[in-house]
């Protein structure tokens, strides 16, 4: 089975965000970059599929050199090969990413392509479905369950208050949501083995960006809230404020 998993590299979720000098992106000083957390579910699923069906897992990322971080983590979890599509700069949008991923993935002729459902920097929920469209492959994002029976797939997708069950056939694109599986912790042996796995570099195709960030701002600091310290005795006052001042109940 030929399995492709797309990984992105993002600031650690505990990063304190500061706006950088350009006013359009974050200040990267001191920021730790990690694999996008949802992509770990995608890599885990990819490796489990390989273990069940044999085959290979190829991790693909579009970005600057930093994007190797995500690929390396995928290696430690069991991916076999990596491809870095080298972006000339940090200035790209989801459309550029999806076009580039699709161009490279098409040549790999995979049976399945896995993504995280969402990157925690841009929070797009966009790239998996967009890439699938450019590949002409069926796709489902926010997936919590995937069952393959030959080339038939049964998929569960999380929606508000419940789930959808879908049917599709391979080749297929899946975006992983938490709940799909439990990502493994790489052991020392797999960490050592990962060091010799190759990352192939490819040039990006020139795709003009369709949208640009003009400004980045931190939320306005909240004024000091009204906090009472007498426990249940303050409840009538709190409820009055919610009704009369905030007018929310």
């Amino acid at each position: 089975m030929k399995i492709v998993v797309c990984v992105s590299t993002v600031p650690d979720s505990t990063t304190k965000i500061k706006v950088g000098g350009s006013g359009k992106s974050i200040d990267e000083a001191g920021v730790t970059f990690i694999i996008n957390p949802y992509d770990e579910f995608a890599v885990e699923e990819a490796v489990q599929l390989k273990e069940k069906n044999t085959g290979e897992v190829i991790a693909v990322s579009f970005g600057t050199d930093r994007a190797k971080e995500g690929i390396k983590k995928a290696f430690q979890m069991g991916a076999d090969k990596g491809i870095l599509i080298k972006a000339a700069s940090d200035d790209f949008d989801s459309y550029t990413v999806a076009k580039n991923l699709a161009a490279v993935i098409k040549d790999l002729s995979p049976d399945i392509v896995l993504f995280g459902k969402q990157s925690i920097d841009f929070d797009g929920l966009v790239v998996p479905k967009m890439t699938a469209e450019f590949l002409g492959m069926p796709s489902v994002n926010v997936v919590t369950k995937l069952e393959l029976n030959g080339t038939d797939a049964t998929i569960e997708r999380e929606i508000e208050g419940g789930k959808e069950t879908l049917k599709a056939k391979l080749p297929l694109v899946i975006g992983a949501q938490k709940g799909l599986n439990t990502p493994r912790y790489p052991n020392l042996k797999s960490i050592m083995a990962s060091k010799s796995k190759p990352i192939e570099e490819k040039a990006a195709i020139d795709e003009p960006v369709k949208s640009s960030v003009l400004e980045m701002n931190l939320p306005a600091a909240k004024g000091q809230g009204k906090v009472f310290s007498d426990g249940a005795a303050n409840v009538p006052e709190l409820v009055r404020l919610l009704r009369e001042e905030a007018k929310v109940i």
Binding site: T15, K16, V209
Partner: peptide, 13 residues
Amino acid sequence: AYAGKCYTKVKAN
């Protein structure tokens, strides 16, 4: 963006 830690102003080109 960044899980609500900041806001961006975005324009379609």
